[in-house]
Nucleic acid binder design. Structure first.
Lengths: 143, 143
DNA sequence: ATAAACTGAAACTATATCAATTACAGATCA
DNA sequence: TGATCTGTAATTGATATAGTTTCAGTTTAT
């Protein structure tokens, strides 16, 4: 899958910690990617109302919501994330053979079902959960 | 994700319908890929005991189990399928920043969790279910 | 006013992943 | 004993994804 989801979650967690307006350059530096990609991803989060943006001097990105009320499903829907998919299709729809002509459709149904399953799981994880997990992991690594 | 899973499921469904020994060439023709790839995938299913193979003249692949007792989880485990993953990692583990150094680990945990979720779902689908779904889809498309 | 610092968006390039191809050793059986 | 398979590996080619560059539009400080 594409890693836009990771960029978005990382970005929001960072914004939530800093609480001020952050430029795409600073975000890109923390995420370890380039500003253009950060802007592309964050623009989608803005359209979904998850963050706010400000153009011009001193502009950037800002997260003003309660971190316990924003879950990862809202983020993956804002980005239209596909967790499970396969561009390659087995068989050939234009043959009389039921299996050769139908298998790709059946597999697509399965992938679609798995995607919805993943999205429902993402609904159970909030930005706050991530933040707490980061803290826990850091403590564990010190032990 | 890789499409080996689709090749494997398609192959087993086809073997289950034909009931006789089928060569990699015939399987490849139905799946619409090349014999070498079919052999690579089917060899793993053989190691897992899902199908049997026969080398030499008149050799090939054979599925002798009850289709209602082989589920897709056993196939994805035989192939070590990873449904959800991302090779790209955000941040950098070698920085003091808790977020930049910890986010990739947290995302990997999430992906791992989603993978296990998908595998459990695959446990609920058998080869027989796929066969029945193919029949149902064909009827629907005629209506 | 206007110059500086930012986002938004698109085009283009580089790279990594995955499937196709080719080749050949080893097994099996007529 | 030679024809026909599988098993496996190396190489090539196609495609998907991240990086780079560029520029128009917005906002604000001075």
């Amino acid at each position: 899958m594409t890693s836009e989801f990771a960029v978005a979650v990382h970005g929001v967690v960072y914004l939530n910690q800093r609480k001020v307006t952050i430029s795409s350059e600073e975000l890109a530096s923390n995420v370890c990617t380039n500003p253009a990609r950060v802007r592309k991803v964050m623009a989608k989060l803005k359209k979904a109302g998850i963050i706010t943006t400000k153009e011009g001097l001193e502009g950037g990105y800002h997260f003003a919501k309660d971190s316990s009320e924003v879950n990862l499903r809202s983020i993956c829907e804002a980005l239209d994330v596909t967790f499970v998919s396969s561009s390659w299709k087995s068989g050939n729809v234009d043959t009389p053979c039921m299996i050769a002509s139908g298998m790709s459709g059946v597999m697509d149904e399965i992938y679609g079902d798995l995607n919805e399953l993943c999205r429902r799981r993402m609904e159970e994880i909030t930005i706050k959960d991530i933040q707490e997990k980061l803290i826990r992991n850091r403590l564990d690594s010190k032990a």
